[in-house]
Computed example of a mutant assay.
Amino acid sequence: MSSDSLPTTDELNPNDCTCCFTTGLSVFLSIWIVLFYAKTPLQFYIKYATYALTVIFFALIVMFLCLLRPCNPKNVAIVAKIFNILFKIYDIDYEIENAKYLQIKDPYILICNHQSSMDFMTMMKIWPGGNCTPLAKKELLYSGPFGIAAWLCGITFIDRINPQKARGTLEKLADKINDDNMRIWIYPEGTRSPSTQLLPFKKGAFHLAIQAQVPIVCVVTSSYSNFYNKKEKKFNFVGKVKVRVLPPFQTTGMDSDSVNQLSKHLQDKMQKEFDLLNKEIGLDEKYYVKSKNDKVDNDLTRTTFVQDLDYTQLNDLTHLNSLINQTDSIYLSQVQSDSNNNSINEEDQKKSQ
């Protein structure tokens, strides 16, 4: 072809370029959508990439929205509503029990089991509203747009590598909890675990609750393994997640000596609820971790539990159990009467605006 036959710059039609780009984009999106819904080996990667890109893309938008009130924890309530709309493409059925316990007016520490990056969807689904902030590892701050958006949303970051700095962060947070009527969301396992056996709980959440003398609300989420499993490259539709919120555990009267036993007590309780939820959703048996002491009765389990704590005396255990098992009518009277109401109360809605 001679140079005379090539189109010059003046002869190029912008409309043709636009048409080519639109056609190419349409073809790419069509292929992407087909792979998203088709049963192919690529489906896991396409779905996970869609999930990750959705989060990153929206994080860019959140960065600008949060500039109106930067570093305000109430920003997350707005973010949660929008993400819940976007995440509907995954068709995950969430059943939430006792959401009323998230609506108590006083500050509290919320602890939840930590399974995978899918926990972000669960967090957005059951976000308690109000002045709530998750406690996140400092490394998340450097994760691009998502980290910046998290900072602008008022997320509290903790340096897990430096114990002294981590302790200082918790001490400052303890002072703010009651002053600002805050709710703190913490994953006490400290890292993700897809297993049906909870990892040992870190003590930070319990030190924080006792130092601030605020209750602990346990949130237990059933396993995602029936529809999502990274190792098996499985990401199915029509998934079911069952979430159970336990009544608030009072820490009034406890001190730092109670931390170890309190964390073990609540981990034991959450493990039992986790097992129950997994049975209720019909989790495949291959995902269960068999315990050596499945048939041990409650009394023997409690005796073994006490012996593991070499510093604990029987009198201290009795006193701690009485504190743990207290039912404070003040908190229960503040809970909405409708146990099926999964939204935040009107006062929290006004505060979040």
Score class of each variant (00 low, 15 high):
residue 174 A to S: 13
residue 175 D to Q: 12
residue 175 D to G: 02
residue 176 K to N: 07
residue 177 I to V: 10
residue 177 I to F: 09
residue 178 N to Y: 03
residue 178 N to G: 06
residue 179 D to T: 10
residue 180 D to C: 06
residue 180 D to F: 06
residue 180 D to S: 13
residue 181 N to W: 11
residue 184 I to H: 10
residue 184 I to F: 07
residue 185 W to G: 05
residue 185 W to F: 15
residue 187 Y to C: 11
residue 190 G to S: 10
residue 190 G to Q: 02
residue 191 T to Y: 03
residue 191 T to K: 06
residue 192 R to V: 00
residue 192 R to F: 00
residue 193 S to G: 12
residue 194 P to Y: 01
residue 195 S to I: 00
residue 195 S to W: 00
residue 196 T to Q: 07
residue 197 Q to M: 13
residue 197 Q to S: 13
residue 199 L to I: 04
residue 202 K to L: 09
residue 202 K to D: 09
residue 203 K to L: 12
residue 205 A to S: 10
residue 205 A to F: 07
residue 205 A to E: 09
residue 207 H to R: 03
residue 208 L to I: 04
residue 210 I to F: 05
residue 211 Q to P: 00
residue 211 Q to F: 01
residue 212 A to R: 07
residue 212 A to F: 02
residue 214 V to A: 13
residue 215 P to T: 04
residue 215 P to L: 07
residue 215 P to R: 06
residue 217 V to Y: 07
residue 217 V to C: 06
residue 217 V to G: 03
residue 218 C to D: 03
residue 218 C to G: 10
residue 218 C to P: 08
residue 219 V to A: 09
residue 221 T to I: 12
residue 224 Y to N: 01
residue 224 Y to E: 02
residue 224 Y to S: 00
residue 225 S to G: 01
residue 226 N to E: 13
residue 228 Y to W: 04
residue 229 N to K: 02
residue 230 K to P: 05
residue 231 K to A: 03
residue 231 K to N: 07
residue 232 E to F: 03
residue 233 K to Y: 11
residue 233 K to P: 10
residue 233 K to C: 09
residue 235 F to Y: 03
residue 236 N to W: 05
residue 238 V to D: 15
residue 240 K to F: 02
residue 240 K to C: 04
residue 242 K to D: 05
residue 242 K to M: 05
residue 245 V to Q: 13
residue 245 V to P: 10
residue 246 L to K: 10
residue 247 P to M: 03
residue 248 P to L: 09
residue 249 F to Y: 15
residue 250 Q to D: 14
residue 250 Q to R: 12
residue 251 T to R: 04
residue 252 T to C: 03
residue 253 G to Q: 02
residue 253 G to P: 01
residue 253 G to W: 07
residue 254 M to T: 01
residue 254 M to R: 01
residue 255 D to F: 04
residue 255 D to T: 00
residue 256 S to M: 14
residue 257 D to A: 08
residue 259 V to P: 04
residue 259 V to C: 02
residue 259 V to I: 04
residue 260 N to E: 14
residue 260 N to G: 11
residue 261 Q to R: 09
residue 261 Q to G: 08
residue 262 L to M: 05
residue 262 L to K: 06
residue 262 L to I: 03
residue 265 H to K: 01
residue 265 H to G: 09
residue 265 H to D: 14
residue 266 L to D: 00
residue 267 Q to C: 04
residue 267 Q to Y: 09
residue 268 D to V: 00
residue 270 M to P: 01
residue 272 K to L: 08
residue 273 E to F: 02
residue 273 E to C: 14
residue 273 E to L: 06
residue 274 F to M: 11
residue 276 L to H: 08
residue 277 L to W: 02
residue 278 N to I: 01
residue 279 K to Q: 13
residue 279 K to P: 10
residue 280 E to Q: 11
residue 281 I to E: 12
residue 282 G to D: 06
residue 282 G to V: 03
residue 283 L to N: 04
residue 283 L to V: 05
residue 284 D to I: 01
residue 287 Y to G: 01
residue 287 Y to K: 02
residue 288 Y to C: 08
residue 288 Y to V: 04
residue 289 V to W: 11
residue 291 S to G: 12
residue 292 K to R: 13
residue 292 K to T: 07
residue 293 N to A: 10
residue 296 V to T: 15
residue 296 V to P: 08
residue 298 N to D: 14
residue 299 D to L: 14
residue 299 D to N: 09
residue 300 L to P: 02
residue 301 T to K: 15
residue 301 T to M: 15
residue 302 R to I: 14
residue 302 R to L: 12
residue 303 T to R: 15
residue 304 T to C: 15
residue 306 V to T: 11
residue 307 Q to S: 13
residue 308 D to K: 14
residue 308 D to C: 14
